[in-house]
């Protein structure tokens, strides 16, 4: 299970994810940014599979790439004019933002290296999908129902906000 192939897979997927994330923050044309974001999410779905979370990987592809990315593409089509794609996309806080993000990364990596994780010696559950289904309808049934209400409220709110005023 802990073979060389797994390590190579991890580094390839991690490399794709990091490079496409950098493309998302550096490209000027927003449509290209959204396509890079989809690539990053695909690489992360692959990483989920290396973590034995097949169901999460499928949910990631369905919801993020299938719904959220398409939503962003529609948003770009609805708001930006064609001339907008060549204007400057970043503000004047590049230097201080770079320092802040670097400090954040340094802090996170330091904390992660100093913490001793309580790694479980147990073997991984192979068939996670049916177990997730069971858990969602037994232990986590209240948060599950609550989250569906939250989703419904957000969708109604979105429709109300985006509707044209009748005047």
């Amino acid at each position: 299970m802990e073979g060389i192939g797994q390590i190579i897979t991890f580094y390839i997927l991690a490399g794709i994810a990091v490079i496409s994330a950098i493309l998302v923050i550096s490209l000027r044309n927003l449509v290209h940014c959204v396509i890079s974001l989809a690539l990053m999410m695909l690489a992360i779905a692959g990483l989920y599979i290396t973590l034995f979370a097949e169901f999460i990987a499928m949910v990631q592809i369905l919801i993020y790439i299938g719904a959220v990315v398409v939503l962003f593409l529609f948003l770009i089509m609805l708001t930006l004019r064609l001339t907008d794609k060549d204007i400057k996309q970043t503000n004047e806080q590049k230097g201080i933002s770079f320092i802040l993000a670097g400090l954040l990364l340094f802090l996170l990596v330091t904390v992660l290296n100093r913490t001793s994780w309580n790694i479980s010696p147990e073997a991984v559950v192979e068939n996670t999908t049916s177990k997730i289904g069971n858990l969602l309808l037994t232990t986590y049934v209240f948060p599950f129902e609550l989250i569906s209400v939250v989703l419904l409220a957000c969708l109604i709110g979105a429709i109300v906000i985006a509707r044209k005023d009748k005047d």
Partner: peptide, 15 residues
């Protein structure tokens, strides 16, 4: 952590 830092940088600099 690397992805989070990249996202932070982008969120702070995008107009």
């Amino acid at each position: 952590a690397i992805l989070f830092a990249i996202g932070t940088y982008g969120a702070l600099t995008r107009r």
